[in-house]
Nucleic acid binder design. Structure first.
Length: 548
RNA sequence: GGGUCUGUAGCUCAACGGAUAGAGCAACGGUCUUCGGAACCGUUGAUGGGGGUUCGAUUCCCUCCAGGCCCA
């Protein structure tokens, strides 16, 4: 990658000025194209150590620098060194793109999309699926050995309620489940009965097992439908909560043996107060096991399966849970730094409130999909009535809009769901990116292109030069995006790229360009742009369309 | 009460400690005898308050204010 090459060149020349080899400095993209391609703050960081003026040190570093790949290297602002690469360095780099080198080829388990049985999927569920899917795609692109797991919620006292509801009404849906829960608030006997049903299930009661199995099967079907509907990569594993039932006693034993488990107010806990993490409840006072115990089992199981790293895409509210989980694993000496990562994300609110069926504040995944498809259909009828495969395109555009809406936000932020914004397909939106791709396809179709090589142009406009640079950095962007598992970095890059493509489209005629050399350059630029944008969209899990 | 996250333009969001804080929507004004206008260009408009650290702070630290979430 070019960024790494520049870093190495800087390290070499910085050493000649007397700076330490292990100096920490940045090589980043210039904030504005007029400054150049890359910028480094090495002189700003180093000036204090050498007691020199930043600008003087920068000059010195430049003096020692091997400059053959640069068109221009200059000092600017408070002491940045700005690099402008030669065009042919960029064209060569684009012709032979380097993949981000993956540090270690260890097996990674990526857990996301944990749907609950018998609960309808809402837009909050989609978020983990969309983010997790994109992270999986990027990890695969980076050459990592990643496997995904859904970890479906199919166990716990809630199933007592579901079974009880089934026995009472002969069938179960979310409404009845909620109704029973509401009744239980005033009628304690219902809660007791539900608990008993779950105890029976755990004990292996045949009738309850069958009801439970039917519920699980039904939900799995629903789940796979959405999975398919949203184009989520197939899961490598479906290890639901119930899968870990028989693995929990051993963990309890170990916690006891290591004297970590203590009894407190009838519950079995691990005290983490000295770490500022409060009390971790492992077994509740009523004897019920907790998610924490189950997740301990999950992690240890995965470790035995050879996974060196365990990533959890779960919302913010579970932060303490995962901190406790990792802390207990550390006490058990089962985990080292960074072997467990909670990839948390903000949750979606609607009209300023958390999504809640009971409060009538709910946006179901299926409803959003239906509404979006309807609107996309209308737009196509209006703009491109002759489009073939209209249904297919409608679905692809809908998915693009919904996925991009999630992915463009920094995952840490809470999102306010707004129908108008989600259904707005102009500006910073999924369809905007797809549209840029369609334009490129059209040019190539019109030109009747065959494969061509991107060469150093005899003439290049500023926009074309910007585009050229942008195309060269996709691998670096994926690397940045994976560093803290932030798909929005990639999403933002693709939006920028699409903007440049549209600007280029507006400014530079391709098919009608009379000068053959310029025309060929532009054609190959279009071809590479299409390839890069297509690749990037794929990493977000968005389908690139030839027509829309 | 303890912990934690958030506060950026009218709204919804960006910004590895970096250069003049970016977008989209909304509002207003432009571009087209064009490879598809789901486009392009422009105008208006913002870091909750107060301290500190530093060459440089939306970002780090302290404090106050206002919210969210988790735990008991």
């Amino acid at each position: 990658m070019l960024r790494e090459e520049i870093r190495e060149l800087l390290e070499i020349s910085a050493e000649k000025t007397g700076l330490q080899k292990d100096l920490v400095f940045d090589v980043s993209y210039c904030s504005e194209a007029k400054f150049g391609d890359y910028a480094s703050n090495i002189a700003l960081v180093g000036s204090k150590l050498l007691k020199k003026k930043p600008a003087d040190l920068a000059q010195e570093i430049i003096h020692h620098l091997d400059q053959k790949m640069f068109e221009k290297v200059e000092v600017a602002g408070p002491g940045f060194i700005n690099f402008t690469l030669k065009n042919d360095v960029l064209t060569k780099s684009i012709e032979k793109p380097s993949k981000p080198k993956s540090a270690k080829k260890q097996k990674i388990l990526l857990e996301y999309f944990q749907p609950n049985i018998a609960k309808p999927l809402h837009i909050g569920h989609l978020r983990t699926a969309i983010i997790g899917d994109s992270i999986k795609r990027m990890l695969l692109y980076a050459g990592e050995k990643v496997e995904s797991d859904t970890h479906m919620g199919d166990w716990g006292t809630q199933f007592g309620y579901l079974i009880l509801a089934f026995k009472k009404y002969g069938s179960v849906d979310n409404e009845k489940y909620v109704q029973l829960n509401t009744e239980a608030e005033t009628d304690k006997s219902i809660h007791e009965a539900a608990k008993q049903e779950f105890v029976k299930l755990e004990a292996g009661d045949k009738e309850n097992q069958k009801i439970w199995q039917d519920l699980v099967n039904g939900s799995m079907k629903e789940f796979l439908k959405i999975n398919d509907l949203m184009d989520i990569l197939p899961f490598d594993h479906h290890w639901p909560e119930s899968f870990y039932e028989d693995k929990m006693p051993a963990i309890l034993e170990e916690l006891k043996k290591k004297k970590l488990l203590v009894e407190s107010q009838g519950a079995q806990i691990v005290n983490l107060e000295n770490q500022g993490l409060g009390i971790a409840v492992i077994v509740k006072s009523d004897g019920g096991t907790t998610y924490l115990l189950r997740d301990l089992a999950t992690f240890i199981f995965a470790q035995k399966e050879g996974f060196k790293k365990h990533l959890y895409v779960v919302d913010n509210r579970q932060s303490l849970h995962y901190q406790q989980l990792f802390a207990i694993l550390a006490l058990l000496k089962k985990i080292k730094d960074n072997e467990g990562v909670h990839i948390n994300y903000g949750f979606i609110s609607f009209k300023g409130q958390a999504l809640s069926t009971r409060k009538g504040n709910m946006v179901l995944a299926q409803d959003v999909i239906t509404q979006a498809e309807e609107k996309v259909g209308k737009i196509i009828t209006e703009k491109n009535p002759d489009l073939k495969n209209k249904d297919q395109a409608t679905k692809a555009i809908t998915k693009a809009a919904l996925k991009y809406f999630d992915l463009k936000h920094n995952r840490h932020s809470d999102i306010e769901f707004d129908w108008d914004e989600v259904l707005d397909f102009e500006g910073d939106s999924g369809p905007y990116l797809q549209y840029a791709y369609v334009r490129l396809s059209n040019i190539l179709k019109k030109a009747g292109i065959t494969k061509s090589e991107l060469r150093n142009p005899k003439l290049i406009t500023p926009t074309e030069r910007e585009l050229l640079f942008k195309l060269s950095i996709l691998p670096e962007i994926v690397q940045d995006s994976l560093k803290d598992y932030l798909p929005n970095i990639l999403a933002h890059y693709l939006y920028d790229l699409s903007g440049l493509i549209n600007k280029f489209y507006h400014e530079s005629p391709v098919v009608a360009e009379p000068d053959e050399q310029i025309r060929n350059f532009r054609l190959s630029l279009v071809e590479k742009a299409k390839q890069t944008l297509g690749q990037g969209l794929d990493l977000l899990g968005i389908e690139a369309l030839e027509e829309m």
